[in-house]
Amino acid sequence: TEYKLVVVGAGGVGKSALTIQLIQNHFVDEYDPTIEDSYRKQVVIDGETCLLDILDTAGQEEYSAMRDQYMRTGEGFLCVFAINNTKSFEDIHQYREQIKRVKDSDDVPMVLVGNKCDLAARTVESRQAQDLARSYGIPYIETSAKTRQGVEDAFYTLVREIRQH
Protein backbone atom coordinates (compact mmCIF):
# COMPACT_ATOMS: atom_id res chain seq x y z
CA THR A 1 0.00 0.00 0.00
CA GLU A 2 1.25 3.45 -0.84
CA TYR A 3 0.50 6.51 1.26
CA LYS A 4 0.90 10.06 -0.03
CA LEU A 5 1.93 12.22 2.90
CA VAL A 6 2.44 15.97 2.71
CA VAL A 7 4.43 18.00 5.23
CA VAL A 8 3.18 21.58 5.59
CA GLY A 9 3.94 24.52 7.86
CA ALA A 10 5.65 27.90 8.04
CA GLY A 11 9.23 28.48 6.86
CA GLY A 12 11.97 27.30 9.20
CA VAL A 13 9.91 25.02 11.46
CA GLY A 14 11.88 21.91 10.45
CA LYS A 15 9.73 20.20 7.82
CA SER A 16 12.75 19.04 5.82
CA ALA A 17 14.72 18.13 8.93
CA LEU A 18 11.86 15.88 10.11
CA THR A 19 11.50 14.25 6.71
CA ILE A 20 15.24 13.66 6.26
CA GLN A 21 15.53 12.32 9.81
CA LEU A 22 12.79 9.79 9.01
CA ILE A 23 14.19 8.78 5.62
CA GLN A 24 17.96 9.00 6.13
CA ASN A 25 18.38 8.88 9.92
CA HIS A 26 20.40 12.03 10.27
CA PHE A 27 19.86 15.62 11.33
CA VAL A 28 20.36 18.42 8.83
CA ASP A 29 21.57 21.45 10.71
CA GLU A 30 21.91 24.09 8.03
CA TYR A 31 18.77 25.83 6.82
CA ASP A 32 18.18 25.66 3.10
CA PRO A 33 14.62 26.70 2.21
CA THR A 34 12.77 24.02 0.28
CA ILE A 35 10.82 24.65 -2.89
CA GLU A 36 9.55 21.10 -3.16
CA ASP A 37 11.19 17.73 -2.57
CA SER A 38 9.76 14.27 -2.50
CA TYR A 39 11.05 11.22 -0.71
CA ARG A 40 10.03 7.58 -0.72
CA LYS A 41 10.61 5.01 1.96
CA GLN A 42 9.34 1.50 2.52
CA VAL A 43 8.44 0.83 6.14
CA VAL A 44 6.44 -1.68 8.15
CA ILE A 45 3.66 -0.12 10.22
CA ASP A 46 1.55 -2.41 12.44
CA GLY A 47 2.71 -5.42 10.45
CA GLU A 48 1.83 -3.96 7.07
CA THR A 49 4.58 -3.15 4.60
CA CYS A 50 3.87 0.20 3.05
CA LEU A 51 5.50 2.76 0.84
CA LEU A 52 5.54 6.30 2.15
CA ASP A 53 5.57 8.90 -0.56
CA ILE A 54 6.42 12.08 1.34
CA LEU A 55 6.20 15.53 -0.17
CA ASP A 56 8.24 18.15 1.66
CA THR A 57 6.83 21.56 0.80
CA ALA A 58 7.83 25.22 0.82
CA GLY A 59 6.99 27.21 3.93
CA GLN A 60 7.92 30.42 2.15
CA GLU A 61 4.91 32.53 1.26
CA GLU A 62 6.04 33.14 -2.33
CA TYR A 63 5.36 29.50 -3.15
CA SER A 64 1.86 29.46 -1.73
CA ALA A 65 0.34 29.13 -5.22
CA MET A 66 1.83 25.64 -5.44
CA ARG A 67 -0.10 24.55 -2.38
CA ASP A 68 -3.44 23.83 -4.03
CA GLN A 69 -1.80 21.33 -6.33
CA TYR A 70 -0.11 19.16 -3.71
CA MET A 71 -3.04 19.49 -1.32
CA ARG A 72 -5.23 17.90 -3.96
CA THR A 73 -3.00 14.84 -4.31
CA GLY A 74 -2.00 14.36 -0.67
CA GLU A 75 -3.89 11.79 1.39
CA GLY A 76 -2.67 12.94 4.77
CA PHE A 77 -0.96 16.03 6.15
CA LEU A 78 1.62 16.67 8.84
CA CYS A 79 0.93 20.23 9.99
CA VAL A 80 4.19 21.34 11.57
CA PHE A 81 4.99 24.31 13.79
CA ALA A 82 8.03 24.98 15.99
CA ILE A 83 7.44 25.13 19.74
CA ASN A 84 9.72 28.19 19.93
CA ASN A 85 7.84 30.08 17.20
CA THR A 86 4.37 31.31 18.14
CA LYS A 87 3.70 32.72 14.69
CA SER A 88 4.24 29.30 13.11
CA PHE A 89 1.67 27.90 15.56
CA GLU A 90 -0.83 30.61 14.61
CA ASP A 91 -0.22 29.82 10.92
CA ILE A 92 -1.50 26.24 11.35
CA HIS A 93 -5.08 27.46 11.13
CA GLN A 94 -4.55 28.82 7.61
CA TYR A 95 -2.96 25.58 6.41
CA ARG A 96 -5.83 23.57 7.83
CA GLU A 97 -8.43 25.86 6.25
CA GLN A 98 -6.69 25.69 2.88
CA ILE A 99 -6.47 21.89 3.01
CA LYS A 100 -10.17 21.65 3.89
CA ARG A 101 -11.06 24.00 1.05
CA VAL A 102 -8.94 22.24 -1.58
CA LYS A 103 -10.12 18.79 -0.45
CA ASP A 104 -13.67 20.08 -0.11
CA SER A 105 -13.92 18.17 3.16
CA ASP A 106 -13.91 18.82 6.91
CA ASP A 107 -12.47 15.40 7.52
CA VAL A 108 -8.96 15.08 6.09
CA PRO A 109 -6.35 12.90 7.86
CA MET A 110 -3.95 15.22 9.70
CA VAL A 111 -1.51 15.22 12.57
CA LEU A 112 -0.43 18.38 14.40
CA VAL A 113 3.32 18.33 15.03
CA GLY A 114 5.19 20.56 17.47
CA ASN A 115 8.81 20.33 16.36
CA LYS A 116 12.06 21.41 18.08
CA CYS A 117 10.96 20.02 21.45
CA ASP A 118 14.66 19.61 22.33
CA LEU A 119 14.87 23.42 22.73
CA ALA A 120 14.36 25.02 26.12
CA ALA A 121 13.05 28.31 24.71
CA ARG A 122 9.46 27.13 24.31
CA THR A 123 6.85 29.80 23.52
CA VAL A 124 3.98 27.46 22.62
CA GLU A 125 2.86 25.36 25.58
CA SER A 126 1.97 21.70 25.04
CA ARG A 127 -1.47 22.42 26.45
CA GLN A 128 -2.22 25.07 23.81
CA ALA A 129 -1.25 22.68 21.05
CA GLN A 130 -3.23 19.82 22.59
CA ASP A 131 -6.27 22.08 22.82
CA LEU A 132 -5.93 23.08 19.18
CA ALA A 133 -5.53 19.47 18.05
CA ARG A 134 -8.54 18.46 20.13
CA SER A 135 -10.65 21.20 18.56
CA TYR A 136 -9.65 19.82 15.13
CA GLY A 137 -10.18 16.22 16.23
CA ILE A 138 -6.62 15.23 15.28
CA PRO A 139 -3.60 13.83 17.18
CA TYR A 140 -0.82 16.07 18.52
CA ILE A 141 2.77 14.85 18.65
CA GLU A 142 5.88 16.68 19.82
CA THR A 143 9.03 15.94 17.87
CA SER A 144 12.68 16.77 17.66
CA ALA A 145 14.27 16.30 14.27
CA LYS A 146 17.56 16.72 16.11
CA THR A 147 17.21 13.90 18.66
CA ARG A 148 14.73 11.92 16.51
CA GLN A 149 12.21 11.98 19.35
CA GLY A 150 8.67 11.45 18.06
CA VAL A 151 9.71 11.50 14.40
CA GLU A 152 8.57 8.00 13.45
CA ASP A 153 5.58 8.40 15.73
CA ALA A 154 4.40 11.49 13.83
CA PHE A 155 4.60 9.93 10.36
CA TYR A 156 3.28 6.53 11.47
CA THR A 157 0.37 8.13 13.33
CA LEU A 158 -0.55 9.95 10.13
CA VAL A 159 -0.55 6.64 8.21
CA ARG A 160 -2.86 5.18 10.88
CA GLU A 161 -5.16 8.19 10.52
CA ILE A 162 -5.35 7.57 6.75
CA ARG A 163 -6.05 3.87 7.32
CA GLN A 164 -8.90 4.63 9.69
CA HIS A 165 -10.31 7.21 7.35
Rank of each mutant, 00 (worst) to 15 (best):
K4A: 11
K4G: 07
V6L: 06
V7R: 03
V7A: 08
V8M: 02
G9T: 03
G9D: 04
G9A: 04
A10L: 12
A10D: 08
A10W: 09
A10V: 11
G11W: 11
G12H: 15
V13F: 00
G14Y: 00
G14I: 00
A17I: 06
L18P: 00
T19L: 05
T19V: 13
Q21I: 07
Q21W: 15
L22C: 13
L22E: 13
L22K: 15
I23Y: 12
Q24A: 15
N25W: 09
H26E: 13
H26M: 15
H26K: 01
H26C: 10
H26L: 14
F27P: 04
F27L: 06
F27V: 07
V28T: 12
D29S: 10
E30M: 06
Y31H: 09
Y31Q: 04
D32P: 03
D32W: 05
P33H: 05
P33L: 05
I35N: 07
I35Q: 02
E36W: 04
E36G: 04
S38R: 04
S38W: 01
Y39E: 02
R40M: 08
R40D: 01
K41Q: 10
K41I: 11
Q42H: 11
Q42R: 12
Q42Y: 07
V43Y: 12
V44Q: 12
I45G: 06
I45E: 04
G47V: 05
E48F: 13
E48L: 10
T49P: 11
T49N: 11
L51Y: 05
L52S: 02
L52A: 05
D53R: 05
D53L: 02
D53C: 06
I54Y: 06
I54P: 02
I54L: 11
D56T: 01
T57F: 01
A58G: 12
G59D: 05
S64L: 15
S64V: 08
A65N: 01
M66H: 05
M66G: 09
M66L: 15
R67H: 00
R67E: 08
D68T: 03
D68W: 12
Q69E: 15
Q69W: 14
Y70S: 01
M71F: 06
M71H: 06
M71G: 02
M71N: 10
T73N: 09
T73C: 09
G74C: 03
E75Q: 06
E75D: 10
G76T: 05
F77T: 04
F77K: 05
F77P: 00
L78D: 02
L78S: 00
C79M: 15
A82H: 10
I83K: 15
N84T: 14
N85D: 15
T86R: 14
T86Q: 15
K87R: 06
K87Q: 07
K87F: 10
K87C: 04
S88M: 06
S88L: 01
E90C: 09
E90F: 10
D91S: 15
D91Q: 15
D91G: 14
D91P: 06
I92Y: 06
I92M: 03
H93I: 13
Q94H: 15
Q94D: 05
Y95Q: 08
Y95C: 11
R96T: 07
R96G: 04
E97C: 13
Q98N: 03
Q98H: 09
Q98E: 15
Q98C: 13
I99R: 01
K100C: 15
R101L: 04
R101G: 03
V102W: 04
K103L: 14
K103N: 06
K103S: 06
D104P: 08
D104M: 15
S105W: 05
S105V: 15
D106L: 15
D107L: 10
V108S: 03
V108I: 14
V108W: 07
M110I: 10
L112F: 03
L112H: 01
L112G: 02
V113W: 07
G114F: 01
G114H: 00
N115P: 01
N115L: 15
K116F: 15
C117D: 04
C117K: 13
D118L: 02
D118T: 02
D118N: 02
L119V: 13
L119G: 15
L119N: 15
A120I: 07
A121L: 08
A121T: 13
R122K: 11
R122P: 12
T123G: 12
T123D: 14
V124L: 09
V124D: 11
V124S: 11
V124N: 05
E125F: 11
E125V: 10
R127F: 09
R127V: 11
Q130N: 11
Q130Y: 07
Q130V: 09
D131F: 13
D131E: 15
L132R: 05
A133Y: 02
S135E: 06
S135F: 10
Y136D: 06
Y136A: 07
G137V: 04
I138K: 07
Y140I: 05
Y140D: 03
I141L: 10
T143L: 13
T143Q: 06
S144C: 15
S144I: 08
S144N: 12
A145W: 01
A145L: 02
A145P: 06
T147V: 05
R148I: 12
G150H: 12
G150D: 11
G150C: 14
V151C: 04
E152A: 13
A154R: 00
F155M: 13
F155N: 01
Y156A: 14
T157S: 10
T157R: 09
L158E: 00
R160G: 07
E161Q: 08
E161S: 10
I162E: 01
I162N: 02
R163G: 08
R163A: 08
Q164F: 09
H165F: 12
